[in-house]
Amino acid sequence: MKIVVIGGTGLIGSQVVALLRDRGHEAVAASPSQGVDTVTGEGLAAAVQGADAVVDVSNSPSFETEAALDFFTRSARHLIEAERAAGVRHHVTLSIVGVGRVPDYGYYRAKVAQEEAVRDGGVPFSIVRATQFFEFIAPVMDMSTEEGRVRLPSTRLRPIASADVASAVAEAAQGEPSYGVRDIAGPEVHRLDRLGEITLAAKPDGRTVVTDESAGLFAGMPDGVLVGDDTAHLAATRYEDWLRRS
């Protein structure tokens, strides 16, 4: 199969491309650095020509509501139009677990709009929703650090290794369109402040964690949104094991 991976040079996309190539597929990485821009449509027609499936793991460069909404809606529209013209038979989108449960969170609202564009676009599709990546924990801690203290809320989440996300996305791309959503999550539920403590215990740098329910990106997130429900497929990789290897 020829499978085009939009965002194929990023954290998830590069791993998806490698997995697909290892399994004998013609996997093509497409990104702005390679002349493929989903926001403007530049290079899309040529990129998806002859593709059996297209995977979209691209991400907005901004978490600001209007910027993210513009990115995801325009990108999805241009991508689906190019796929229809090229006769692509399967579109796979990576989204976020719980994305429809927090309408006041602008970035999530933008991802909902992306999903809606995919569902209404006329190309057979599959949507994979993942919880937060392990690799996201350290940047969240950095953004919440003040004078050696990492301020984090006790929000519960079930984070997942990016490698496990990439595996699920690659699996979806090789299969038939599901016309639905598959949720994937890590094996354990953690409080975000506790994840900070686990991280600093494994890699101490002089900082300490302070529980602050008003701090950071996930402050005020309704309980359970970042955990998923009983239908989620649970990956095997534990955060502490991943920390030791990374």
Rank of each mutant, 00 (worst) to 15 (best):
K2G: 00
I3M: 03
V4N: 04
V4C: 01
V5K: 06
V17D: 07
A18C: 00
L19Q: 14
R21P: 03
D22I: 00
R23C: 05
R23F: 01
G24E: 15
H25I: 00
S31Q: 08
S31E: 07
S33K: 11
D37N: 12
G41N: 06
G41A: 04
A47K: 03
V48W: 07
V48S: 01
Q49M: 08
A51I: 12
V54P: 00
V55C: 02
V57M: 04
S58N: 08
S60I: 06
E64M: 09
T65K: 15
T65F: 14
E66K: 11
A67P: 09
A67W: 00
A67L: 12
A68C: 12
L69W: 09
F71I: 00
F71N: 02
A76L: 02
A86S: 11
G87Y: 10
H91E: 14
T93K: 09
T93Y: 07
G100H: 12
V102H: 10
D104Y: 12
Y105I: 13
Y107C: 04
K111R: 13
A117V: 07
R119N: 03
D120R: 13
G122T: 07
S126C: 06
S126D: 11
F136A: 15
I137E: 05
P139F: 00
E146Y: 07
E146C: 14
E147C: 00
G148C: 08
R149Y: 07
V150F: 09
P153H: 08
S154R: 15
R156W: 09
L157P: 06
P159S: 06
A161L: 12
A163L: 14
S167H: 11
Q174C: 14
Q174T: 15
E176F: 00
V189S: 09
D193H: 11
R194G: 09
A201S: 14
A202R: 15
A202I: 11
P204L: 10
D205S: 01
V209A: 06
G220L: 05
V225G: 04
D229G: 15
D230V: 07
L234D: 09
A236R: 13
R238A: 08
R238D: 09
R238S: 09
Y239N: 02
E240W: 13
L243D: 08
R245A: 11
S246I: 15
S246F: 09
